[in-house]
């Protein structure tokens, strides 16, 4: 076996990077909390998520060393994010667009919180363990 060129003595980051990143994360947390008290209309979510993404990027790139490591690890991480995006976006093609062509005719089965009624029916059923068709 050929010995590979060694990058084993892995990158040791200087202390100030860790402390600096930690400090930046603290500041960003403060900022996002403060912004949440301001009404930006629909933009609150966007800003909150943008700040969270910056914080996440800091953690991933520095604490998890993705900035310095082999880029295959970054690829794996981005793959995860990509498939998660597919899951959410494609499902929303459904949930956000229902009833466009043909308005949904069905009414909610029971309007309002019918959960208390349902609880009764459940408990009465669980007493009766024999199989009945329902």
């Amino acid at each position: 076996m050929k010995a590979k060129a060694s990058d084993h003595s892995a990158h040791i980051l200087p202390l100030r990077i860790y402390l600096g990143v930690g400090f930046a994360l603290f500041i960003l947390t403060g900022i996002t909390v403060m912004i949440s008290f301001v009404d930006l209309g629909g933009w609150n979510v966007t800003v909150a998520l943008a700040v969270a993404s910056i914080k996440a990027a800091l953690v991933v790139l520095f604490f998890m060393h993705l900035l310095y490591d082999n880029k295959i690890y970054l690829t794996i991480f981005l793959t995860a994010i990509g498939f998660l995006a597919i899951l959410i976006i494609f499902t929303m093609f459904d949930t956000m667009e229902r009833g466009r062509l043909y308005p949904e005719k069905a009414k909610p089965i029971k309007p309002g919180a019918a959960i208390y009624e349902r609880e009764d029916s459940l408990s009465s059923r669980s007493v009766d363990t024999t199989k009945t068709d329902h």
Binding site: T29, T32, V33, I35, S36, V38, D39, L40, N44, V45, A48, L49, V51, A52, K55, A56, V59, V60, F63
Partner: peptide, 15 residues
């Protein structure tokens, strides 16, 4: 930590 970074604004900071 990363997951919490997203949970926090999504749950606590709905504007």
């Amino acid at each position: 930590d990363l997951i919490w970074i997203f949970l926090f604004p999504l749950l606590y900071l709905i504007g």
